[in-house]
Amino acid sequence: MQKSNWWVHVLLTIASFIAVFPVLWILSTSFKPESEVFSNTIEWIPQSFTLDNYKAVLTKSNGIFLTWFKNSALIALFTTVVGLVLSTTAAYAISRFRFFGKKWIELGLLITQMFPGALLIIPLYLIVNKLGLLNTYAGVILAYSTTAVPFCVMMLKNYFDTIPYELEEAARVDGLSHFGTFYRIVLPLALPGLAVTAFYSFITAWNEFLVAITLLNQEQMYTLPIGLQQFVNQFNTDFHYMSAAAMLITLPVLVFFIVAQKYLISGLTSGGVK
């Protein structure tokens, strides 16, 4: 059988190459001096390897890049915490109890998960503006919660569904209250599910662009996606800086994703699409 498989390898190699090439190309660009970046020949590997682009990105305008990094990290972190704290009990209720209106709540969650920011952005902008929360973390986190909360409920509900109910029955028989059962029995068992949900919630907030660019217009408050766009807009030719910044943003996520890949993908397929 091995012999007839060569074309499978050829196709997969081509596809893998296309998948990683753009990332490798900015990786290569990020180590090139300006003269090599803007040259008329293709240099696959930097001829005169340099770290100047990284230094420039990290020190530019008093380290504004690090401020953006901090903004992004804090906003994504708080959104994740808010999303998880608010949604865990609800996800459990939907998974475990029968109650009046359950179907409608599930449908409502599904629909809000499907209609993203683009629809709600105008009223959210006006609310945040009215509250005086433009250019604050709170305003953005508030707006992100509109998608993060239903997303977390759906993901966690699907995870709770996979935890056997017998354990809870036993706990209830032993005299634990509903809350006690949830807190002491279910929550510890659901930790892997919580971790996966947290990861996706974090990444969604980390990547978000539409809400951020609408609610944040002071450079000090930018998140990374908006900040990176400034590199392209303001300094139209600074692709070498942009590449270095892009690699700094990507590397932690990429490494984590590759290490935790198996876990994350099974978490998604048992959670997200069902």
């Binding site: 997969l12 893998s16 753009p22 990332v23 980390w206 990176l228 990429l254 994703f257 590759i258």
Partner: peptide, 29 residues
């Protein structure tokens, strides 16, 4: 290995992916 490599476009933040392509599309360089 193939599966890991094929997941890269998904693992990379989408705005970074967009910038990588933007740079590859650059008219002159």
């Amino acid at each position: 290995i193939y599966r890991t490599l094929l997941m890269v476009p998904w693992a990379v933040p989408s705005f970074v992916g967009a910038f990588a392509w933007l740079w590859m599309y650059n008219d002159k360089y």
